[in-house]
């Protein structure tokens, strides 16, 4: 009798486990379907990590693709019900082209745009933020860094020490300009510096125009120096100090309505989904068990 009961529970356990796996697969399949639109009147877009035109490194890569962000901004701009766009920025910057692509997408949008700078919103990330209508940063956020960098390691002497020779074969005398395996000549250094200066000039003009700052003043602060949020506000680089609440408060004032955030992100690939679904399954299982065990004992507030 006992054995019969034990074997029944065994069967129950096997069936429940099978159904768990089945539900796991279905939830994975479900997420692979066309992306589900988010509900809300504020499109919440994250810009995290280095900013590039395309993400390299496959599904494990970090960083932000300007192609993706520009598409999301465009999508939010067209969405019925979306009245504003909130860009959550935590990025040290990236490529000038990628930053400009996102900035242009922001300026093209007809909706209120707010940049919320978290830990870092510097260089290219600040270029993007400057294109929005309103910037909120924490008093300790690192921002600014209005400059361009093109530094690289030169191995010319090192390879010489190891009797390695750089065989220069070019057609076009500046074709290998910036190659780390040869010494940079004075002329080449001057050319590279000139390019960097041009990019820098673009950056300064963008910030001056976006932030309505006098050109000369902008050039003065565009030394590449980064500023903490508090300093940035004094310099006119950000509009308000605070965090998410302040950003939302501004949006609600502009929209004259309660803000409901809708996550706007690029659909994930298969492997990214697989790890995410597996992690969520484990979390929800633990959450449910934990809640049921501890809420009754009064250890969790309802």
């Amino acid at each position: 009798m006992k054995q019969e009961k034990r074997s029944k529970w065994k069967i129950v356990l096997i069936v429940v486990l099978m159904l768990f796996v089945f539900s796991f697969l279905i939830s994975l399949f479900f997420r692979l379907l066309n992306e589900v639109p988010e509900f809300g009147n504020v499109a919440h877009i994250k810009i995290y990590g280095p900013i590039m035109v395309t993400k390299s490194g496959g599904w494990m890569s970090s960083g932000t693709s300007s192609t993706d962000i520009a598409e999301l901004i465009e999508k939010a701009d067209k969405a019925i019900g979306v009245k504003a766009i909130l860009l959550e920025i935590n990025s040290p910057g990236g490529s000038a082209v990628a930053s400009d692509e996102i900035a242009r997408a922001i300026k093209k949008s007809n909706k209120t745009t707010v940049a919320w700078i978290r830990e870092v919103g510097a260089s290219g990330a600040y270029w993007i933020a400057s294109a929005t209508d309103h910037i909120v940063a924490n008093r300790m956020s690192v921002t600014g860094s209005i400059g361009v960098i093109g530094s690289y390691l030169e191995f010319a002497e090192l390879i010489e020490q190891y009797n390695v020779t750089y065989r220069r074969m070019v057609a076009g005398k500046y074709k290998d300009l910036g190659s780390p395996f040869k010494e940079l000549t004075e002329e080449e250094e001057s050319l590279l510096q000139d390019l960097l200066d041009q990019l820098h000039e673009e950056f300064i003009q963008e910030v001056a125009s976006n932030r309505n700052l006098p050109y000369e003043k902008t050039k003065e602060i565009a030394t590449g120096m980064f500023y903490l949020g508090k300093q940035a506000k004094e310099l006119g680089l950000v509009d308000a100090l605070g965090g998410k609440e302040e950003a939302i408060a501004y949006l609600e004032k502009q929209m004259n309505a309660t803000a409901t955030l809708a996550k706007y992100e690029k659909p994930k690939g298969f492997w990214e989904l697989l790890t995410e679904v597996f992690a969520e399954h484990s979390f929800r299982l633990g959450e449910g068990l934990g809640e049921s065990l501890f809420r009754k004992k009064g250890l969790l507030e309802t």
């Binding site: 429940v16 768990f20 539900s23 509900f39 409901t260 996550k263 679904v277 929800r284 299982l285 449910g288």
Partner: peptide
């Protein structure tokens, strides 16, 4: 606990929260 809980995240994302008109 075992079967529906994993879907709760997906359902929360799908179901809009707001007034009827919205």
């Amino acid at each position: 606990f075992v079967v529906f809980a994993p879907f709760s995240g997906a359902i929360k994302e799908l179901l809009p929260v707001g007034n009827f008109h919205a």
